[in-house]
Design a protein around this nucleic acid. Structure first.
Length: 537
DNA sequence: AATTACACCAACCGCGGGTCC
DNA sequence: GGGACCCGCGGTTGGTGTAAT
């Protein structure tokens, strides 16, 4: 267990100077040489302690306040990608992998936004996964997207080329914060026919997932973090600290636990940063054996996520609309950045004719307000089509797609993928011969020309995660739960370099105000780990 | 056993947007 | 209005582990 940390220490013994970029940040004028390279567990603990005390944000102040010789950017990255308590580590599940493919098809390389759709996953993880996947598929001579999703992707590309809205934005009402608007859904439904033509095939699944990957299996068997995208805001759209406020926390860290906001279903409504004391999601450095052992002890973990508190967050939260950066990219430039897969992706070059035939507002020829309205419509439509229910459309035949004419789309079960596909398709979905050339014949798709890359799935019900949430309720067992769960930010300390100083960790965590017993780095937990043989003291 | 190729991961870098002063 | 600062995103690089040869 400690091998990695020792290696890590050796690696990080080489200390580089900070980049000019960060050095120009202003607050770092103390000329303290900033360290680069891999983080040590000790640094991680310092950072965790800092965040627990001061909250997220103001990263450049970390060095100032904690003495951590890391630039703010590095701190933010470390926190966001590794130390954040809501991270879901381990291999992507097949469902997640498919979701990534879908998301990429509609969003392109918008990793952060994809991460919002994949609770517990970071943009970096997704990006790494995708890049690896691309390489693998290119080497294998496979298209980047499976046929069904490829079609979707091409549509998305087409939309972009037409200066249309990014459907990605429309897919994210939380981001827009206007999901309460009553705007008639006027689009997309006709495209539900896709689910008839393309049974939900898994996108390509890496070899490790096709194998009997214990981690994947573990995760796919329902051991998932009980997060839903409704509350998982990730670091992509965090509620920022109000500039100038020294701390976002009004009280002790104990208050933090009470300041979490939950929805009726028990899911956490407030931002992930509101729960900096839940370290139950850190299994980054655990081996599978570790995870298995832990899962045997504490199935599910995340005990206190299922808590119930209606109190308002006490930290300063600034609600903000999303940046229009992406929208404007899509609206303004007909040559806006395309998914980076252009060279290999299958593209559909279709005429813009019929673009506006739905009667929906088109941002391509209107101003911001129209754009917002358009997006609202899109959003509403996508909401109507997304995942729940088998609502079908009365006007679902896409006349612009000859191959799809006449498809009876009524009364068929709607797969999540298809629902998704429908939601991301716009009303213009023409397809030309070149694209059909590239695709396997649509007529043959359902039958099996498409390589079925993975067998039966057991789709996980994100809505049903609550069953895994509360396992232990007593404070004492909750200690163990929080820290023995497979995602424990202190796991790296426990498992990597326990020799470092568990007592120090304990001191750090308990001194940070977790008086209510939640999330403190309990010796109960350590003892429990010791009992499993997964930890040495 | 040694070498190579690949997969995976963590971290850095540059850039641009937003906010504050 | 403009500069400074902060933050986040996407691209890229480099290290490590592992399977294949």
């Amino acid at each position: 267990m400690s091998i990695k940390s020792e290696t890590e220490e050796r690696m990080t013994s080489k200390v580089d100077m900070d980049s000019p970029d960060e050095a120009s940040g202003g607050d770092l004028g103390e000329s303290v040489p900033l360290k680069k390279g891999p983080w040590t567990s000790a640094e991680g603990v310092i950072l965790v302690d800092y965040v627990m005390t001061h909250g997220e944000g103001n990263w450049n102040a970390v060095q100032r306040h904690s003495g951590l010789a890391r630039c703010g950017k590095s701190c933010r990255l470390r926190w966001a990608n590794h130390l954040r308590p809501d991270l879901k580590k381990g291999a992507f599940t097949p469902e997640e992998e498919q979701r990534i493919v879908e998301l990429h098809a509609k969003m392109g390389n918008k990793w952060a936004r994809m991460a919002v759709e994949l609770p517990g996953r970071t943009d970096n993880e997704i990006k790494n996964y995708w890049n690896t996947r691309i390489k693998r598929r290119q080497r294998a001579g496979l298209p980047i997207y499976p046929a069904d999703i490829s079609f979707m992707a091409s549509q998305n590309k087409q939309n972009e080329e037409l200066g249309a809205f990014s459907s990605a934005d429309a897919q994210n009402p939380d981001v827009l914060g206007i999901n309460n608007f009553e705007i008639p859904a006027v689009e997309f439904k006709k495209l539900e026919l896709t689910h008839l033509l393309y049974p939900p095939q898994l996108a390509d699944i890496p070899a490790r997932s096709l194998l009997n990957d214990p981690v994947s299996n573990f995760l796919s068997q329902g051991h998932r973090a009980p997060y839903s995208s409704t509350y998982f805001l990730s670091t992509t759209y965090p509620a920022k600290r109000i500039r100038g406020s020294e701390s976002v926390f009004s009280g002790s860290n104990g208050d933090l636990l009470n300041s979490l906001q939950y929805q009726n279903d028990g899911s956490l409504l407030a931002q992930a940063q509101a729960q900096p004391l839940d370290f139950s999601s850190y299994n980054h450095n655990l081996t599978y054996d570790d995870q298995r052992a832990i899962s045997n002890i504490v199935p599910g973990g995340h005990a206190y996520l299922n808590g119930n508190s209606s109190s308002e967050p006490t930290w300063a939260m600034k609600l903000e609309l999303p940046s229009l950066q992406n929208q404007t990219e899509n609206w303004g430039s007909p040559h806006s950045a395309l998914p980076s897969l252009d060279s290999v992706d299958i593209l559909i070059q279709s005429p813009p004719a019929g673009h506006s035939e739905s009667g929906s507002l088109s941002p391509s020829n209107s101003g911001l307000l129209d754009a917002v309205l358009h997006e609202s419509q899109t959003m509403k439509a996508s909401n109507d089509n997304s995942y729940q229910g088998n609502e079908t459309s009365g006007n679902a035949v896409n006349n612009s797609c000859p191959d799809l004419k006449g498809c009876d789309i009524y009364g068929h079960p709607v797969s999540p993928l298809s629902q998704f596909s429908a939601s991301v398709f716009s009303d213009y979905a023409p397809i030309n011969e070149s694209s059909l050339h590239e695709f396997p014949s649509m007529a043959t798709m359902p039958g099996g020309e498409i390589k079925q890359e993975i067998g039966d799935l057991s789709p996980l019900d994100d809505e049903d995660n609550t069953s895994n949430q509360t396992i232990f309720s007593s404070p004492k067992t909750q200690h163990a739960n929080n820290h023995l769960a497979s995602k424990d930010p202190f796991g790296s300390c426990f498992f990597d370099d326990c020799d470092w100083d568990c007592k120090q960790i304990h001191a750090v965590t308990t001194s940070s105000g977790q008086a209510n017993g939640h999330n403190s780095c309990s010796w109960d937990a350590i003892s429990a780990m010791e009992a499993t043989g997964r930890m040495r003291l």
